[in-house]
Design a protein around this nucleic acid. Structure first.
Lengths: 209, 209
DNA sequence: CCAAAAGTGTTGGTTTTACACCCATGG
DNA sequence: CCATGGGTGTAAAACCAACACTTTTGG
């Protein structure tokens, strides 16, 4: 049987200390006017990963970001028009680059990842799946760093973890644990942004260091 | 673009204390005569999960087993004939039911999951992905129990863990840890199979017990 | 009585959690 | 000098890893 195949990409970022997801408003039926996860059809000559990167670039203008396949959704009636299965992905983009996204022609906005609006198709399931995966991977991978610019403070990093986990963490324990992974390098600059002690900046050290 | 969609199922079991995978020999080109992971096309009216369960039943005769979606492979040239993407799954079947599988018309055999033969298409990647997923899930889920019949001894369970992890475990530590999960219930019978002390049989207690 | 696998506790080291005060700066 | 967020250590509890002998049975 021949079917149409799309990729849909759950794009996360952190804004104002909250986990956000990028949604676009559909301009055509079905689900016209409703919010949806960005995506599109896989082209003849490209791999699934390439299709996802292309769509991500089209939607946000960003390249070279964390992108990982999530799950494939293929219920026969998930699209009322035809048999369409979608290979979902999730991407993490840094807060500094996030602001440029969602300013394109199509209406696009950042929404709370925890209280999203009603979504088209089965996109609520896709988002929930992405949310769970991100939370799960936070503790045993370095995904958390992918949401911050190249130089960041430990307080900012802790904010990312708290936004994803949805609970507060102990400052001293967090710092000890994250530093002893050896994944962070202390940069020579400090961040001074107000009437307070300047914060040490850190960078993400290359993997097998 | 329209593509063909298949499901491929990596079917694991434990035989003689070793992790095995079921492979079938291809009767038609391409890759005629080579070993491959069982699978087939998704039908018009079925979901991906249903397709996987159907193929699994056709291949092994078993139903009601652990089955989980793994990853979707879709490189443009992974099948030389046409654009075919495959949604891969992995399944775990208990050793007592494993023996009936692989005796059908098509040539099918159990192979070592760690030293499989050369495989058709990108099936080696699929198998590696499944192998990693299984190993990863062993420690934080109950997948290990899915490979044993309803009544089993702790030594048998430990054997499953050792086969998947590829290393030996300490008997006392293993027993303590597995028992304190609360997932096992002591059955009233014991297993007596030779000139030795009979072993207590355990069952898998329903989840939220 | 012997061979075979079943069963059982303790100790030392490591990891995790809980918790409160001083520091550096800008205004 | 004060308000703001940055930065630091310690003690108790939980968890993990290493390790050897006794028990029950069939033949």
């Amino acid at each position: 049987m021949d079917v149409r195949v799309t990729v849909d990409i759950v794009i996360f970022t952190i804004l104002k200390g909250r986990l956000k997801v990028l949604l676009i408003r559909r301009g055509i039926p079905p689900f016209k006017g409703e919010w949806a996860i960005p995506g599109g059809f896989v082209l003849e000559s490209e791999s699934l990963d390439q299709a996802a990167r292309r769509e991500l670039a089209e939607e946000t203008g960003v390249t070279d970001v964390f992108l990982e396949q999530l799950y494939t959704f293929g219920d026969p009636d998930r699209d009322p028009r035809a048999r369409v299965i979608t290979v979902s992905y999730y991407a993490l983009i840094t807060s500094d680059r996030a602001l440029n996204a969602g300013t394109d022609a199509a209406e696009a906005r950042w929404f709370s990842a925890d209280r999203p609006p009603r979504l088209a198709f089965d996109h609520s399931s896709i988002l929930r799946t992405a949310r769970r995966r991100l939370e799960g991977k936070l503790e045993y991978t370095d995904v958390g760093f992918q949401l911050l610019p190249p130089a960041f403070t430990l307080t900012e990093l802790q904010g990312v973890y708290e936004a994803i986990l949805g609970r507060e963490l102990d400052k001293r324990n967090f710092r000890r644990k994250i530093l002893q992974t050896g994944l962070l390098v202390e940069l020579s600059e400090k961040k001074r942004i107000g009437p307070q002690r300047p914060a040490q900046l850190y960078g993400f050290s290359p993997r097998s260091a």
